[in-house]
Nucleic acid binder design. Structure first.
Lengths: 124, 124
DNA sequence: CAAAACCATTGACTCCACTCCATGGTTTTA
DNA sequence: TAAAACCATGGAGTGGAGTCAATGGTTTTG
């Protein structure tokens, strides 16, 4: 798959995809016809990118993501201190969920207040 | 309360507090003794900052936070398009929660795999 | 009272995650 | 077949969110 198709499939810009590749989050091969300089992305790259965008949207950094993907791919569990690393990221995500939930509750409260004030609003 | 106390109370650096004040998220008054240039923060600022850090940790931007706090304070519900604004941020937070949950599940799976591989690990 | 700790202001600096641009080559399409 | 659309590479630029350092004043404390 070429970069344009991947971009259309994922909603990520070509620039972002190239950037992610430079950061080592995804990989590509030179196209089958060596007449051009185009690159070819494996079919499962879109899938991989869904994981990546989820993690990014949840607040994980590219550097962390790279570590994770690297050792998940190499099957090299036990690299550096994976266990501690996982514990930290898990705690981080739980924190994000908790704060997002609290903030969500606050906003829902605000929305309720707005609805209220709309209800008792007197024209003129 | 002076900035040092507020910093100790919230865990945010003085610089961050000054930065937040410049962005309009918090406010202060000149100290009671006008002999110095110190500023005094209302007692409830720490509380307010807890809201702010929650929202920041959940991924809300400072600009959005300022809009929210401004119109919550002015009681000016119905300013700009508050209703649409709230809907967007709420959707954003729900998205964060969903992606964080998916990512969390993935990491927990990874941790389980690590535990497994530990279990069947053969020394030497 | 002197040293240490605190404070304000200004402006420069850093880091992250993109995003844009210029250049030059390749495919697709009307 | 020519224009339009696509591609790669390299490097510069952007925006958000802080962070740091310099300067010069004020309080606290031993």
């Amino acid at each position: 798959m070429r970069i344009g198709a991947l971009s259309a499939l994922t909603g990520l810009s070509r620039d972002t995809l190239r950037f992610y590749e430079k950061q080592g989050l995804i990989r590509s091969q030179p196209s089958s016809e060596p007449s051009n300089t185009y690159r070819d992305y494996p079919e499962d790259t879109a899938e991989r990118l869904r994981m990546i965008t989820d993690a990014r949207d949840a607040g994980l950094s590219i550097a962390d993501l790279k570590k994770l993907l690297d050792c998940m791919e190499s099957g090299d569990l036990g690299a550096f201190d994976l266990d501690a690393f996982l514990d930290e990221r898990i705690a981080q995500l739980e924190h994000v969920i908790a704060t997002a939930q609290r903030t969500l509750d606050m906003l829902n409260g605000t929305r309720a207040a707005v609805a209220m004030s709309d209800q008792i609003h007197i024209p003129q």
